[in-house]
Amino acid sequence: MNKNPLPLTETTFFILFSLASSPKHGYSIIKEVEKISGGRVKMAAGTLYGAIKRLVDCGWIEPTDPTKKTLDERERKYYRLTKEGSSRLTEEILRIRKLSLLIKDYHTVVGI
């Protein structure tokens, strides 16, 4: 993943955002992303795990139990944000906030 990663891709942002409140497994990440995006973003499992792989590789998220290699029936692997991931998410949120303030000012100036 890019060393200078801002702005995050939409998928990355939503995955990090969905993990901000608590660790989650793949299915619950998909559902959470669908919920927080108002049903607009429906991730396929392939897209999700491609992104998860890259986020794990660059240390932004991690499995809650990395020693567990195989899963039992119905058992799930949970992922959580790392400190690095959390700070990247915060940076991105601040960036978006600045942008939204700019847009607000633009509205005032232009009058739309």
């Binding site: 793949g26 299915y27 792989k53 692997k77």
Partner: peptide, 17 residues
């Protein structure tokens, strides 16, 4: 390599979906 790491989980997520 990707399969070893994620295929099982992806399959499970797909079944859930």
């Amino acid at each position: 390599g990707f399969q070893h790491e994620y295929a099982e989980e992806m399959n499970r997520v797909f079944i859930d979906l």
